[in-house]
Design a protein around this nucleic acid. Sequence first.
DNA 1: GCTCTCATGAGATTGTGTCTCAATCTACGG
DNA 2: CCGTAGATTGAGACACAATCTCATGAGAGC
Lengths: 141, 141
Amino acid sequence: MPATAIPDRMTSQGRRLTRQRVVVAEALASAKRALSAQELYERVKAGHPTIGRATVYRALEAQVQDGMASRFERDGHVSAYIACDAEHHHHLVCTKCQRVLDLGETVVAPLLASVGRRHEFLVDHAALDFYGLCRSCRRRR
Amino acid sequence: MPATAIPDRMTSQGRRLTRQRVVVAEALASAKRALSAQELYERVKAGHPTIGRATVYRALEAQVQDGMASRFERDGHVSAYIACDAEHHHHLVCTKCQRVLDLGETVVAPLLASVGRRHEFLVDHAALDFYGLCRSCRRRR
DNA sequence: GCTCTCATGAGATTGTGTCTCAATCTACGG
DNA sequence: CCGTAGATTGAGACACAATCTCATGAGAGC
């Protein structure tokens, strides 16, 4: 039960604050791991049976735009989402337990800079997410 | 018309050399830019009207496995493919003209190493592809 | 409260990618 | 050079995530 006022961050861009988006944001924040839109939809639906699939998709898209969540690709062409703070950073995704570790921008900044310099390439965004096994899943092998 | 003997690289893993896979490989190699499976299917079909969609998908998958092509995600949950040599490397993808520049493994190796060290994370694979504007598209703005 | 919008929800629709299976073709041994 | 075993193909059906539509319902400023 975080004391963080999640709703405060959801009214940017003239967006209205609705109960549904709050519910989706709280569900994602409490998951502490990467979830696909479908998985999140099912979780939310347990407590709010009338919520629509499209609403969950739209809420997730809004969260990504507002910097409250991050999206990346899971095997099988499925988007997965993880709640995160607004600072731009990247992730280590455990392909087994779906837990996510943060990777600070400072670690990857040198790489981004050298790429832009060496190739005269204007980097818009980078898929800088690492997939593998986290420490505990690694030991369990 | 490259003199490179493309077929020589397609018989690994007990795979049989078929006309269809050669056609797909040549089409991708001559594209010089990233193509989705669907785009490639349409190109190939122009010269070989009886080829099946599934065959193109299977051929692309085989090429990725054999290190002859690389796959990455385009917006809208679509896989795109680019022909490349067997050395493992990453890419700079121009989101406007779909041309692809290579990014040598040496540039990203330090990052991979530091990630594994600092987080005790066993990196299986990383989405280390950069999306943005290449030099010529950048100037055209 | 009222009103103007925007958001929602239910389902249809889209589009990528996978699967099935009989017919066909490759590779290889004789 | 031919025959056989088994992988590959092609056509379409299928699975699935994601998007779109549009009437209904709810947010926010007055």
